[in-house]
Deep mutational scan, measured.
Amino acid sequence: MTSCHIAEEHIQKVAIFGGTHGNELTGVFLVKHWLENGAEIQRTGLEVKPFITNPRAVKKCTRYIDCDLNRIFDLENLGKKMSEDLPYEVRRAQEINHLFGPKDSEDSYDIIFDLHNTTSNMGCTLILEDSRNNFLIQMFHYIKTSLAPLPCYVYLIEHPSLKYATTRSIAKYPVGIEVGPQPQGVLRADILDQMRKMIKHALDFIHHFNEGKEFPPCAIEVYKIIEKVDYPRDENGEIAAIIHPNLQDQDWKPLHPGDPMFLTLDGKTIPLGGDCTVYPVFVNEAAYYEKKEAFAKTTKLTLNAKSIRCCLH
């Protein structure tokens, strides 16, 4: 018999989150649709729960009410004593943790798909938090293969000092899905179709896995975050240069030392320094102006996964 890495157990509980950011409308629209008619997301033997994560922000069509829901799922915020004085999103995070967690427990949901849009030209993107997770690498390989020839990129946010504390991190297997470009507060049919297909293929993978299909060893190309880059700023902290036209919409493309990065209003080009080629992502993302992030630098690498098969009882 072929030796293989056996994944822990079959997958039982899956959640699909929309509206973690209330103005990213593809996930909101799909989740609302699936709450009314969820036939397309159901798979035999699998509990799939669509869920609106930040209903107040969705109602106002804004990213958040008090603070970013997708950055506060750490033990400090989840452990705060519940009171009306807490920011709305912290209270909501505790409610979500109660419903789908608790985080880092045996009772937490197996998989959470968190649906997002970006204003950046990132196409279909899967966000991975753990480079050693054979199950998710296999799932992402399946999704990428199923979507081809449509490109699907994998963004690895594993980093020693950049801690995200994402909404989906309460699950055993957290999956971020990011599709763009799409303006905030807008629905685009092409973007919706791409996100819908990503979810379909992900659920198909889980179904095949649960039925005992063995997935042979595989490898995927990923883009691992190195650092986030702020806009150049003046002495008052105001933005002093904008994304250069040569960099705009060039997510995932190589940016070499000396290539144009920013452009000042008086026409001066600010190039990339250093001696390493990087791959920019979230270029000129609207939501990241407040976070002082013009783009993120990534490096390209390959992740390998062992063969996996479900432990059938």
Rank of each mutant, 00 (worst) to 15 (best):
R196N: 04
E47W: 08
L126E: 00
F51S: 03
Y223H: 15
G267C: 07
H207Q: 06
N246P: 01
I72H: 09
M122D: 02
V31N: 00
I11Y: 05
Q248D: 05
A241C: 06
L35M: 12
Y289C: 12
E158H: 05
M261V: 15
N23T: 05
I52D: 01
A165F: 14
I96W: 06
L312S: 15
S146C: 14
P160L: 11
Q194C: 14
E95I: 12
L99R: 13
V186Q: 08
A294S: 05
C4I: 14
A305V: 04
N121F: 04
P217T: 07
D104L: 15
D107V: 13
L303Q: 01
L115W: 00
P280M: 02
I41S: 02
E84G: 08
I206D: 02
H21K: 05
S3V: 10
E293D: 08
S120W: 02
H33Q: 09
A287N: 14
K253L: 08
P217L: 03
E235H: 12
H141V: 02
P254G: 07
L162G: 08
N77F: 09
G27L: 02
N77Y: 12
P102M: 10
A241L: 00
T269F: 06
T166S: 10
Y109D: 02
N97L: 13
F209Q: 00
L69C: 07
Y142I: 01
N97I: 11
P183E: 05
L187R: 01
N246M: 10
K268N: 13
H256C: 15
I127V: 09
L35V: 10
P174F: 11
P260C: 05
Y109I: 14
F205N: 01
G258D: 10
V229S: 04
E24L: 02
T167Y: 08
V14I: 13
T2D: 12
D66H: 10
A219T: 15
N117D: 13
Y279S: 02
L162Q: 07
A7P: 07
K144Q: 14
K300W: 03
H116A: 10
T26P: 11
E129K: 05
L35D: 11
R71I: 10
E238N: 14
C67G: 07
D68S: 05
V154C: 14
S161I: 15
G45N: 11
A93W: 13
T53K: 04
H207Y: 13
